[in-house]
C-alpha cells in the first residue's frame, strides 16, 4: 500500500490541479478573433478565385465597361464613416453613456444600410445590363466575392439592431458590452476586407 501512495505522490502532474476562476466571457474576445481569422480565410479563397478568374470575360463586359468608380468611392466613404461612428459608439459605451451609444449605433446602421443600398443598386444595374453572375467567370467570381462581403454587412446590421434592442432592454451590462465589442471587431474587420475589395476588384480592374 505504501508504495502505491509514494508512486502517486511522485507521479508528474500533467494538468492544473487547482481550479482557477473562469469569469464569464473572459475568452470571448480571443474566440471571436479566431472566428474572424477563419472568416479571413474564406475571403482569401474568394480573392484567390477572383484573381484566377478575374480576366475570363467570355467575350462579355469587363471591369471598364461595368464599374463606376464614383459609385465605389461613395460606397467606400459610407463604410469608412460607419467604421468611425461605431468607434464613437464604443467610446460612449466606455463612458457608460447609454443614450449616446445608441445614437452612434443607429448612425452606424444607417451608413451600413446606405452601403448596402448602393451595392444592391450596382448589382441590379449590372444584372439589368445582362452582366449577371452567369455571364462569365469574371462576373461569377465578382458576384461571389462582393456578394459575400455584402451578406456579411447585412448580418452585421441585423446583429446591430439586435444589440440595440438588448441595450434598450437591459442597458450597458457587462454581457452587452462584450457583445458590442465583438460586433465592433466584426464591423471593423468588414471594413478591412472592403479595402481589399475596392483595391483588387475595382481599382486594379480599371487598370487591367
Amino acid at each position: 500500500m505504501s508504495t502505491t501512495v509514494t508512486a502517486t505522490s511522485e507521479a508528474p502532474v500533467f494538468y492544473e490541479v487547482d481550479e482557477h476562476p473562469h469569469p464569464e466571457g473572459h475568452s470571448t474576445a480571443l474566440g471571436f478573433w479566431i472566428y474572424l481569422m477563419s472568416d479571413c480565410l474564406i475571403f482569401a479563397i474568394l480573392f484567390a478565385t477572383f484573381g484566377v478568374l478575374g480576366g475570363n470575360y467570355a467575350a462579355g463586359p469587363g471591369p471598364r465597361d461595368l464599374f463606376d468608380l464614383n459609385l465605389v468611392a461613395l460606397n467606400t466613404t459610407m463604410l469608412l464613416l460607419s467604421s468611425i461612428t461605431y468607434g464613437f459608439a464604443m467610446l460612449a459605451m466606455d463612458k457608460e453613456r447609454v443614450k449616446a451609444t445608441q445614437v452612434w449605433l443607429v448612425i452606424t446602421a444607417v451608413f451600413g444600410l446606405a452601403f448596402l443600398s448602393i451595392e444592391l443598386y450596382e448589382f441590379h444595374h449590372m444584372i439589368h445590363e445582362g452582366a449577371g453572375p452567369q455571364r462569365s467567370a469574371f462576373l461569377s467570381a465578382f458576384f461571389t466575392l462582393v456578394g459575400t462581403h455584402g451578406l456579411h454587412v447585412t448580418f452585421g446590421i441585423i446583429w446591430l439592431v439586435t444589440l440595440l434592442v438588448q441595450v434598450q432592454k437591459r442597458g450597458l451590462i457587462t454581457a452587452n458590452k462584450r457583445r458590442l465589442m465583438c460586433l465592433s471587431m466584426f464591423w471593423h474587420f468588414l471594413d478591412v476586407v472592403w479595402i481589399g475589395v475596392f483595391t483588387f476588384v475595382y481599382l486594379l480592374g480599371m487598370l487591367r
Binding site: 466571457g25 469608412l80 468607434g87 462584450r178
Partner: peptide, 22 residues
C-alpha cells in the same frame, strides 16, 4: 471591464488618427 474583455477600446484621438489616415 476592458481588461476582462481582453481588448482595449482605444481613444478619441486614436480613432480620429485612424480615420484621417484612412
Amino acid at each position: 471591464v476592458h481588461h476582462e474583455l481582453g481588448v482595449a477600446h482605444g481613444s478619441m484621438s486614436g480613432y480620429m488618427t485612424g480615420f484621417i489616415l484612412s
